[in-house]
């Protein structure tokens, strides 16, 4: 990147590192941090949406819908999440391809599962065999987002379900007394009030979501863990102009520090939000704030 980098062998320690840390592959490494942040930014709202649907389903008056909601929460919570990550990536991919296969190639007679293979017609492949490299990467990332959202949606559903039940019962009864329908009560009374109760659980979930992002690596996305392993490994002068020993330990130390910093910042920000939200609320936290001010 810098002009003096053309011959790294002659550089001093500082110059060498400034060149080493700004070469092309390191740029991909830094880009993968953006990927992680992007995943968080997309997954969090989508998971919240799934969670909302799950919570709505599990308190529905229709029995099968209630079973669906409760089953969704119970199954995802009872099994190691990493198993879900490994499962969903293949299962979702096959589901999409199978659906496209049914629609695009109705004349196809061979079975889709042949022994140990999963074969769909070429038009149904996702992404198409002819599509460029970035399409494949985007598709992989997209699958990862859905997987994360599905798993964390169940956790969020659990939190929101609890929050909905925490809203004082008289509030809902009052709404009914005013002649509101079931739907109106839900949207106008229950939903606006539940957030205060949901926030501690949701902020906990956010921390957990941050700490789950390295699992992207298992989903085949080229994330920070992938690059740390790649870049840290021993490099000889035959393949690179920056030969070094096994530095993977230092790369992972850097990741460790990155995550520690990230969780610390989140903690501080979430604390502030909680303080603002409890302001003036008839809860213990709000009462404590009022007393402190007086």
């Amino acid at each position: 990147m810098f002009s003096y980098c053309s011959d790294p062998d002659t550089l001093g320690t500082f110059g060498w590192f400034s060149c080493y840390l700004s070469n092309g592959v390191h740029m991909s490494f830094y880009l993968s941090f953006v990927k992680v942040l992007l995943l968080l930014a997309i997954t969090a709202p989508v998971a919240l949406g799934f969670g909302f649907l799950g919570a709505m389903a599990s308190r529905s008056r229709v029995l099968p819908l209630r079973w669906l909601g409760k089953g969704y929460i119970a199954i995802v919570r009872g099994v190691p999440d990493i198993a879900f990550f490994l499962f969903f990536v293949i299962a979702l991919d096959q589901m999409f391809e199978w659906t496209r296969h049914q629609i695009l190639c109705p004349d196809w007679t061979d079975p889709v599962r042949q022994g140990n293979d999963f074969l769909v017609c070429p038009q149904a492949k996702l992404p198409l065999g002819t599509s460029p490299e970035w399409m494949h990467e985007t598709y992989g990332f997209f699958l990862a987002v859905i997987t994360f959202a599905l798993v964390f949606g169940a956790f969020a559903a659990n939190v929101l379900f609890g929050a909905m039940r925490a809203v004082p019962r008289p509030q809902l009864e009052t709404a009914e007394a005013y002649g509101m329908s079931h739907r109106q009560t839900f949207w106008r009374i229950l939903v606006p009030q539940m957030w205060v109760y949901a926030l501690p659980g949701l902020s906990n979930l956010w921390m957990v979501l941050i700490k789950a992002t390295p699992l992207l690596f298992l989903l085949g996305v080229e994330d920070i863990v992938y690059w740390a392993r790649e870049l840290g490994g021993t490099k000889t002068s035959r393949f690179t102009s920056y030969p070094h020993g096994d530095w993977r330990m230092w790369y992972f130390l850097f990741l460790l520090v990155f995550y520690l910093g990230f969780t610390r910042i989140s903690e501080i920000v979430l604390d502030r939000i909680m303080k603002r939200l409890t302001f003036g609320q008839a809860t213990a936290g709000g009462e404590a704030q009022r007393k402190a001010a007086a």
């Binding site: 941050i210 700490k211 789950a212 992002t213 390295p214 699992l215 690596f217 863990v225 740390a228 392993r229 840290g232 096994d246 993977r248 330990m249 992972f252 130390l253 990741l255 460790l256 995550y259 520690l260 969780t263 610390r264």
Partner: peptide, 21 residues
């Protein structure tokens, strides 16, 4: 704080390479 603030996955990786060194 150190062990609750960072992902277990990264802790495993770091420890493995530390032991390797």
């Amino acid at each position: 704080f150190l062990f609750r603030g960072s992902p277990l996955f990264i802790q495993f990786f770091f420890a493995y390479f530390l032991f390797l060194n």
